[in-house]
């Protein structure tokens, strides 16, 4: 460890301080780094040693909390699982997540995303609730496999930063919320598919998607949100043509 070369790398960080700056601008920082150092650690070293005003979100440092998503050399990534050795020799461009308003430096506004997540009934709606004494709602491993990857979403919003249709239409429900929707619609214990599908038949629902597919490539947890959006495009189309045949049973 001790005799390893001390390497340096230049980071261009997009800064925006709402009280001082009219608009965002890049500021250059040079950090010394070691083989195993992540972008997040570099940002922390800048904050500790060079400029305490640099703002960014982080929490777990192990790709599970979804807080440190940012654009690294133009690609949406988690700063904690992106390593400087892979970005050398630099300079590396670091910017807040694409397609989101910037609150401050690398921190973006998440309010709309949270609203979308809340809107799709993100909980199991059983056909009939039963008392606790009646026991669990059972599920086979195969039934679980049908939705399991969609439950791995960590709400990091990298997929939204990768989606040009979300960039063009901020009201598009987007890949992340659709993955959560499919997590419940694909669950054998759930009976809320109809209600959730009714939310996404519109222009701002699945029909804004043009199957670019980069959301799934950006996903650090292999959730495959493109699959969630596009299988529900198929579902929405079926519903469009066959809705006359279905029994209306909501009051």
């Amino acid at each position: 460890m001790a005799d390893r070369d001390r390497l340096t790398i230049e980071l261009w960080i997009l800064r925006y301080r709402p009280a001082q700056d009219e608009e965002p601008h890049f500021v250059s920082y040079t950090v010394t780094y070691t083989e195993e150092m992540s972008v997040l650690e570099a940002l922390q070293s800048i904050k500790d040693e060079q400029d305490g005003s640099l703002s960014f979100r982080w929490s777990c440092r192990m790709a599970i909390c979804g807080s440190c998503g940012m654009m690294i050399d133009g690609t949406p990534k988690l700063a904690c699982s992106t390593f400087l050795r892979d970005l050398a020799p630099g300079p590396v461009k670091i910017a807040p997540l694409e397609n989101f308003p910037i609150e401050r430096d690398l921190v973006v506004t998440v309010a709309d995303f949270v609203k979308k997540i809340e809107s799709i009934y993100p909980f199991i709606m059983p056909k009939e609730t039963k008392p606790v004494e009646a026991g669990e709602y059972l599920q086979t491993p195969a039934q679980m496999a049908a939705y399991e990857p969609f439950s791995d979403c960590i709400n990091c919003m990298l997929c939204y930063a990768a989606c040009p249709q979300f960039g063009a239409n901020p009201d598009f429900i987007g890949p992340g919320a659709m993955a959560l929707l499919q997590r419940y619609n694909g669950d054998s214990r759930d009976a809320g598919s109809r209600e959730r599908l009714d939310l996404i038949h519109g222009e701002d629902g699945v029909w804004s998607c043009t199957a670019v597919g980069l959301c799934s490539e950006a996903c650090p947890k292999l959730v495959d949100p493109a699959n969630a959006v596009n299988q529900n495009k198929t579902n929405s189309a079926f519903d469009f043509f066959l809705r006359g045949l279905r029994k209306e049973n909501h009051s």
Binding site: T140, P141, A142, A145, A146, Y147, P149, G186, A211, G213, S216, D224, A226, N227, N230, Q231, K233, T234
Partner: peptide
């Protein structure tokens, strides 16, 4: 793109 448009295909669990 085809597999993205269909539900996850489960064979033998």
């Amino acid at each position: 793109t085809l597999p993205k448009t269909m539900p996850r295909l489960i064979v033998g669990g």
